[in-house]
Computed example of a mutant assay.
Amino acid sequence: MRLIAAAAVLLPALLIGLLTVPADAASVRLDGVTVRLRPGTSQVVTANRTHGYHARVTLWVREHGRWTKRFSTSDGRIGYGGLSRSTQRHQGDGTTPAGTFDLPFAFGTHHRRPGWDMAYHRIRSGDYWVGDNSSRFYNKLRNKAAGGFRWWLPESDDNGSERLLAHRSQYEYAFATGFNAEQVRHRGFAIFLHVNGRGATAGCVSAPRSFLQMLYRRLSPQHHPVIAIGA
């Protein structure tokens, strides 16, 4: 009887989030968020704004033509300014850009560990994400020793860059996103997926530390992972 009861509980749980879509589909809606699929994408992180700066963050995996929910947290966060259209966002407005963005690599404070398949950068002293609108390295990872941007400007300045080790707890585990890969000046920089801080973000998506650790173990470049943000 216990086995039958357990099966009755597990079966609905396994079916939740199952969605079959054509193999050549250009987009899919997962948890109410429209995902613009890349060729070969079979891993998607969705961030669905629920209220205020709160969001539900979920990992989806496509297997045998079906999208299946694998992990989800209701304790996700977005920017204090809410959501904005990615093409209308302005640097410093505190909004999180809506849309689908690549997850090109991970970065953090730990040495690389077995089982982390994504490209990985361990943060070192002097690493910044460039917010200097006059720099050709705008919205790029750059060490101050390499020069090419005004790293000495305070982060609060209109051209200030983000010193990564100043946010050690949030960036213990983090992923860069493809937002503003075109380096459009004043649109914004340093939009990441990272560990929760105390409240809203300044435009990133954040989730509990355990959720980021799980993504480190699960995401792989072979699956062309993306993050889709919406409501």
Rank of each mutant, 00 (worst) to 15 (best):
V195D: 06
D102T: 13
P104K: 10
S74R: 05
S220M: 03
S161A: 09
H54A: 13
W129L: 10
R70K: 11
G17V: 07
Y216R: 04
G160Q: 05
V195P: 00
L37Q: 11
T100Q: 06
V57M: 08
L141V: 06
N159P: 03
D31F: 03
A23M: 02
G108Y: 01
A6C: 04
M1K: 12
S135Q: 10
F137I: 02
A176D: 15
R36W: 01
N139D: 15
G76E: 05
G17Q: 10
P114R: 01
M214W: 11
W152T: 12
T68Y: 00
R198Q: 11
R185T: 05
L59P: 09
A13H: 05
R218C: 01
I227S: 05
P221E: 09
T95G: 00
I191Q: 01
R209K: 12
F101A: 08
G81E: 03
R185P: 01
M214R: 12
S156E: 14
R124S: 06
G115A: 13
H194R: 13
P208T: 14
E155K: 10
Y128R: 04
R85K: 14
S86N: 14
H54E: 08
A145N: 12
A13L: 15
T46M: 06
R77G: 00
A166P: 02
G115D: 12
L3I: 03
E63F: 02
G108L: 01
S206Q: 03
C204I: 11
C204W: 01
A174H: 12
L164F: 11
L59W: 08
A6M: 10
V184A: 13
R56S: 10
T50Q: 12
T58R: 07
A231F: 09
R29G: 00
W67L: 05
T177E: 07
H121N: 05
I4A: 10
L165V: 09
V61Y: 00
F192C: 06
Q222W: 04
R113F: 04
T50V: 13
G160L: 06
V184T: 15
L15K: 08
R113V: 01
Q88R: 15
H121F: 10
D127F: 12
A98N: 04
N180T: 11
N159F: 06
V21M: 06
A23N: 05
H167S: 05
G126P: 12
T68R: 14
V57I: 07
L14K: 04
L37A: 10
S134G: 14
G199L: 04
N48G: 08
H64S: 13
R217F: 01
A176N: 14
S206D: 03
